[in-house]
């Protein structure tokens, strides 16, 4: 990564325990300004847990963590003002219109009436939804809702945006459009911290980390990771990191298959 970029998220030895269960086991990484950082891992690997800590939603058990230059133990309020967060669950209100949702979050983040108006204009124009601002969220297709949720998370122009599986359940074309929005934000210097289950999306990230059972087992650019594991795509990287036994299993299955055919 370029050295002239400043560090936006700094994590050293992050540990999070729920009782005796270790959800985040000694995580260490840095995320740079303007970077798209992919945070991968199987279900239950501990992605959401780590992201909630970075967003000031939960206390770490131990570790040294700063986000946007602020300490997660003591400066949660400052962190919250400087980040946007799109949670794993859908975060807009179905019974409010597009504009009302935007006004709400604009208001919560302390924008003035005028600023909110301007931002709504800008964001809707970008999404080509200007004439739909009085539509209820409930009446929109899922893909649009997700794109809107992302825009709303950026209404206060945060320095960092956290996206927890932002494209879950969305069709490939809409996912592509969603990533265009992510690129655009990164080009404006916003840092993006994204979790996803789609490995094609991992290819779009500047760097990715792969979590397994609460640990980070790999962290590099997609290109370097593919080289290191000698595979063609991120999907195979993921399988090699997360399920090292998977390939050998596959071979056993196919050979026993063969045997059956011979018999």
């Amino acid at each position: 990564m370029d050295n002239d970029k400043s560090i936006e998220i700094h994590v050293r030895n992050l540990v999070k325990k729920f009782g005796s269960f270790v959800a985040n086991n000694n995580l260490s990484f840095d995320v740079y300004q303007g970077e798209i950082f992919g945070f991968l891992g199987a279900n239950g690997a501990g992605k959401t847990t780590a992201m909630r800590i970075l967003c000031g939603l939960s206390h770490p058990t131990s570790g040294e963590i700063t986000v946007a230059g602020f300490d997660v133990y003591k400066q949660k309020e400052l962190i919250k003002k400087n980040i946007g967060y799109m949670s794993q669950k859908f975060s807009l209100y179905d019974d409010l219109t597009i504009a009302e949702n935007m006004e709400l979050y604009g208001g919560i983040y302390g924008l003035s009436r005028k600023q909110i108006k301007v931002r709504i204009g800008e964001l809707l124009e970008k999404l080509q939804l200007t004439d739909r601002q009085s539509t209820l969220i409930a009446d929109l297709p899922l893909g649009w809702k997700q794109k809107l949720a992302f825009s709303v998370a950026m209404i206060h122009k945060p320095r960092i945006v956290f996206l927890d599986e932002p494209t879950g359940g969305v069709d490939p074309i809409t996912r592509r459009q969603f990533w265009d929005l992510i690129y655009e934000a990164a080009n404006q210097g916003i840092t993006l911290f994204v979790t996803t289950h789609y490995m094609d999306e991992a290819e779009y990230c500047d760097r990715v980390s792969i979590m397994v059972d609460g640990r980070i087992d790999a962290l590099d650019t997609p290109g370097n990771l593919k080289n290191k594991y000698q595979v063609q795509n991120m999907n195979d990287v993921f399988i090699k990191v997360a399920r090292p036994d998977f390939f050998s299993q596959q071979y056993t299955v196919s050979s026993s298959h063969l045997n059956n055919q011979i018999n």
């Binding site: 000031g56 939603l57 309020e77 919250k80 003002k81 967060y85 949670s87 975060s91 919560i108």
Partner: peptide, 14 residues
């Protein structure tokens, strides 16, 4: 239940 609480808690609102 909707998950909006999570986003509200992540906002500067106390």
């Amino acid at each position: 239940e909707l998950g909006t609480m999570e986003v509200l808690l992540g906002s500067p609102l106390k």
